[in-house]
Amino acid sequence: MKELLFLLVLFVSNVIQAITGFAGTVLAMPPSVYLLGLDHAKVILNAMAWLSGLMIAVTGYRHINWKELFNNRSKNSLTSIGDGMNCTFEHVCSNS
């Protein structure tokens, strides 16, 4: 029964994300943690977010503005995201 409730939560949160463009995982996290526990909820919701983004990228491949994606502002953003992930994974962050 908990699994069915989780799937319902996942469906509703993804419908809201499809309408608004954001917050699917944020909305799904609290009930998912209650139903499945923190460890399982984190893994499943992150995997679903990655799969959802990948599906959008693959199906809309022809509509991606590659010039805009790889302009200087995007490069800076991607570099900052990579730096943040590196800092998080290593648990050491220096401001040098």
Rank of each mutant, 00 (worst) to 15 (best):
K75H: 09
N46E: 04
L78S: 14
V26Q: 02
E3M: 08
N46R: 03
L4G: 12
G53L: 07
I64E: 07
F70H: 04
F22E: 07
P30T: 13
L27D: 01
I44F: 03
T59M: 09
N71S: 05
K42Y: 13
W66Q: 15
S74H: 11
L27A: 01
T25I: 06
L78Q: 06
A47W: 04
V33Q: 00
L5Q: 06
A23E: 02
I19R: 04
K75V: 10
M29P: 01
L36A: 01
L54H: 00
G84A: 12
L5E: 07
S77L: 14
V9T: 03
N86K: 13
L35E: 09
H63F: 04
A18E: 01
M29Q: 07
R62F: 09
N76V: 15
G82T: 13
P31L: 00
N65Q: 08
L54Q: 00
Y34K: 10
G82E: 07
E90A: 10
G60A: 02
Y34V: 12
L35I: 13
V15I: 14
A28R: 02
M85P: 04
Q17V: 06
V9I: 11
P30G: 10
R73C: 08
N72L: 13
R73T: 14
S32E: 00
G21T: 04
K42V: 15
V9K: 01
I64V: 14
T88E: 11
K75C: 11
A41C: 00
L38G: 08
L8R: 09
S77R: 10
L38M: 12
T20M: 05
S74A: 15
S74F: 08
N46V: 10
V12T: 13
T25M: 01
K2I: 11
S13I: 04
A49F: 02
K2G: 06
P30L: 09
S13N: 03
T88D: 10
Y34T: 09
N14D: 03
H91R: 07
V12M: 09
L51P: 02
T88M: 13
T59Q: 12
E3D: 05
F89P: 06
A23D: 00
F89I: 15
M1E: 03
P30R: 14
G24R: 02
E68W: 06
F6D: 00
R62G: 15
